[in-house]
């Protein structure tokens, strides 16, 4: 690992000014950053320690039922917060199922959204792939069992954030703070398709940090579910994850639907076609089947990852049934 200095900014404005200088990295939980530094995939001269700033590690209820989550809130803090568990159980579950207890005590919400991909070609310091300014995505013709089945090209990473699908399904937004001030953006618009720029995963500009995550109150009667499938049960990166947030009327018809998948595409992957099938229809197992089918209809697997399609479909189907309170199999 190369030498660097760790500096403590006095306030948010000086932090963003420091980060706008070349060769600076923001230090939050440090989990992904230290990985990148150890592999020398990043070699900043200075780490700007955001933990020196007070007040970014709190979850606050603001008027209107909005939860304002500080970017330095840890995954375990998020998973355990009563307000999150009560109002947004899928979000709490997506945090509780990420990584290990020790990592969840360090990893932050902001870092989870801004982390770099886990693709083994990207993480290999000896490989200059498309994401590192090279000319090709080695996953295309290489070992691609964990890569994208939707939205891939020219890079086929899957976005590693567990929280992002749940936040998108909650219609959450981010306050981004930079040298030019603060802007607000929907979480769904934070992520950048590799078709736009394969070298980055989000729209953060130099010097910009995630200053807050705002989650609005759920629609009346909405229920949510988060499910992920993994190879290893103790902890693992998901092969596919799905969030469903549904509200049903008295007749059992769907009046609000959000379906978002994780670990299937270079960005968190919302499935509007599935939501359209659900809306206005009476929820039963057949409807969940059709919606899950639609969610994966555009899947274009690589040589080794077609197996992820039925897994993702099952996650979507089960998340819909769980959120809708419909038993998975006939009694």
């Amino acid at each position: 690992m190369k030498q660097f200095a760790v500096v403590a900014p006095a306030d948010l404005a000086s932090a963003t000014r420091m980060l706008a200088e070349p060769n600076r990295s923001a230090l939050a939980g440090g989990v992904d950053l230290l990985d990148m530094l150890k592999q020398e995939l990043a070699a900043p001269a200075e780490l700007v320690n955001l933990k020196a700033l007070g007040g970014l590690d709190r979850i606050e209820s603001v008027p209107g039922g909005v939860l304002r989550i500080g970017p330095l809130v840890t995954l375990n803090q998020l998973a355990a917060a009563p307000a999150v568990r009560e109002r947004h159980p899928a979000l709490a579950d997506s945090a509780a199922q990420a990584a290990t207890p020790q990592v969840r005590n360090l990893a932050t919400v902001g870092g989870n959204l801004a982390q770099r991909p886990r693709c083994w070609y990207f993480r290999n310091p000896d490989i200059v792939c498309l994401k590192k300014g090279g000319t090709k995505c080695y996953a295309v013709a290489g070992l691609n069992r964990y890569h994208a089945i939707l939205g891939g090209g020219p890079s086929f990473i899957v976005h590693p954030s567990n929280l992002a699908p749940a936040l998108i399904a909650c219609d959450a937004s981010l306050a981004l703070n930079g040298p030019d001030g603060e802007r607000k953006i929907a979480v769904g618009d934070f992520f950048t398709s590799p078709k736009v720029d394969p070298r980055r995963e989000n729209v953060l500009k130099p010097g910009e940090i995630i200053a807050a995550i705002e989650v609005p109150a759920p629609p009346t009667g909405a229920r949510s579910a988060y499910l992920e499938a993994r190879e290893k049960q103790s902890f693992d990166w998901p092969l596919a994850a799905a969030v469903a947030i549904l509200a049903l009327n008295r007749a059992g018809e769907v009046v609000h639907a959000r379906i978002v998948m994780g670990a299937v595409a270079p960005i968190p992957w919302r499935a509007p076609s599935a939501e359209k099938i659900l809306l206005g229809a009476k929820l039963d197992r057949a409807l969940a089947d059709r919606a899950a089918e639609a969610a994966l209809a555009g899947a274009a697997p690589l040589a080794h990852n077609a197996y992820k399609i039925p897994i993702a479909r099952a996650m979507v189907r089960r998340a819909i049934l769980r959120a809708g309170g419909v038993a998975d199999e006939p009694a």
Binding site: V6, V31, D35, Q102, N105
Partner: peptide, 16 residues
């Protein structure tokens, strides 16, 4: 264990 919470000491800097 830092302030009651288990963490990976390899994933944080000593200065932190």
């Amino acid at each position: 264990v830092i302030d009651g919470r288990p963490v990976c000491s390899c994933l944080m800097l000593g200065v932190e």
